[in-house]
Amino acid sequence: MVADWVSFNVIDTERQDWARGWAALKRFAEREHHARVPYGHREGAAPLGQWVAEQRGAYGAGQMTGQRAQRLERLGMVWCLADERFQENPEAAKVYYADHWALCAPRSAVVLSRPVGQWLSNLRRAGALGGRPEWEAALLAVDKDWKPLWSAERQRHYAALRELVADGEGRADVLPGFTVHGMDIGKWLARQRRPEVWQALAGGQRECLERVGITPLAAPAPVEQAAPAEPFTAPMSAFERGVAARWCSTGPARALWSFPGGMWRGSRPVTASTREYREYREYRVKLGVWVMNQKGRRAELTADKLAVLAALGLDWVREG
C-alpha cells in the first residue's frame, strides 16, 4: 500500500482523489470478487459507482494513462459492460441450443441463471448488433439460424422437426400429438403439409421443409356431381295415371316411390316432387272404375303390372 501511495504522488489533489477511488474499488473487489460496481453504489461515503463510470469514460476517450489503466485492470476493471454481459451469455446460449436445437428461445427462457431468452430477443432487434460483428459471428457459430426471417416460434417448431427426422424417427412417426418441449410438432407438421397452407409459405419456409424430406399432401380429388334426375317428359299412359291416383289416395304424397322389380318408367325407381303428385290428382281419374277395369283385365295384364297393382294393396291380384 505504501508503494502504491508513493507511486500516485499524493501531494497532487487530483491524484489523491483518484487514489481514494482506487482504494475503495480495491476493497469492493476483494469483498465481492469482481469490479462490476453498480452506478449508485457507495463504498462508505464515497460514490464508488459514479467514480468507476467516470474512469470508463476517461478510458474510452483516451484520457487515461496506461499506468492507471493497468492498476484498474489488475482489480478486475471491465471497460465495456456490454462486452462483459455478452461474454457471460453465450455459454448459457450454447446450453440452451444443446437442449432445444435452436437459439430462438422464448423471452422467458433462463439458463445457468442467465435470462438468455430476453437477451437473444434483444439482439434480434434491428440494429442491435451494429458495430459488433464479433458478437454476430459468435452467435452464428452456435446456430446459423439464430435470427430467422420468420417468427421465433416457427423456427422452434422447425428445429424440433429437423432433429426428429435427423434422428431417424421418420416423417410418418411425427403425427399429431407428438410433443417436444411442450410443442405439438405433429400437429404443426400436419398443418404445414395442407395444400392451401403449403402454397402460402414464403421466404424460404418451403425450402426448409423440403430439405428434411417434407412434401405437401396431395390435393383432394374434385367431387363429381351426380347427374340430375331426368324429368318426366313422356306422356303418362292410362295405366300410369291410374297408378298415380291410387298411390296418392292411399297416403300422403311422397318424394320417392318405386315398385317391385324397378320396371316402371325405364326400369328405374320413379321419383317425383310433391307438386307433380298434385298434378296427378288433377287427372281426375275415376279411381273406382279404373280399379274394376284392371280387375276385369287381370288375365291380360303383364307380370310387371300385376306386381305394381299388388304393391298398391289390391288384394284381388294375389287371390287370383
Rank of each mutant, 00 (worst) to 15 (best):
H157I: 00
V165F: 02
Q87H: 11
V111G: 00
L75W: 08
P106F: 05
E196A: 13
L112S: 11
R162T: 11
H181I: 00
L189H: 11
L123W: 09
S113L: 09
V111F: 07
P115A: 03
P90Q: 10
A141Q: 10
L75C: 02
E134H: 14
C80M: 01
A152T: 12
V142I: 15
H100L: 03
D173T: 12
L103G: 08
A160N: 12
C104L: 03
D145L: 11
A202V: 09
P176Y: 10
L103T: 08
R71N: 05
A190F: 09
V174H: 06
C104I: 04
E163L: 04
Q155N: 13
P176R: 08
L103R: 11
A152H: 05
G76W: 01
G131E: 02
R154Y: 08
D167N: 13
V180P: 07
P133S: 07
L140D: 06
E163K: 12
P176F: 07
L139H: 03
R125S: 12
G131I: 02
V111S: 02
A160H: 15
G170H: 00
K187R: 14
L164F: 13
V110M: 10
E169R: 11
R74C: 03
R74I: 01
A82K: 12
L175D: 04
E196D: 14
Y97F: 15
L139C: 06
L140C: 08
G203N: 13
A137N: 02
P176V: 04
P195Q: 08
W101H: 15
A202W: 05
G117C: 04
R124D: 05
L149D: 14
A172H: 09
R114D: 00
Y158E: 09
D184I: 10
L72M: 11
G117I: 02
K147V: 02
L164Y: 12
E136P: 05
H100W: 06
A166M: 06
A93E: 00
S108R: 15
P148E: 04
L139E: 02
E196P: 02
A152R: 04
L72N: 03
G203R: 10
P115F: 11
A105C: 07
L149H: 06
V165P: 01
G186D: 05
F86P: 01
L120M: 14
L75Q: 15
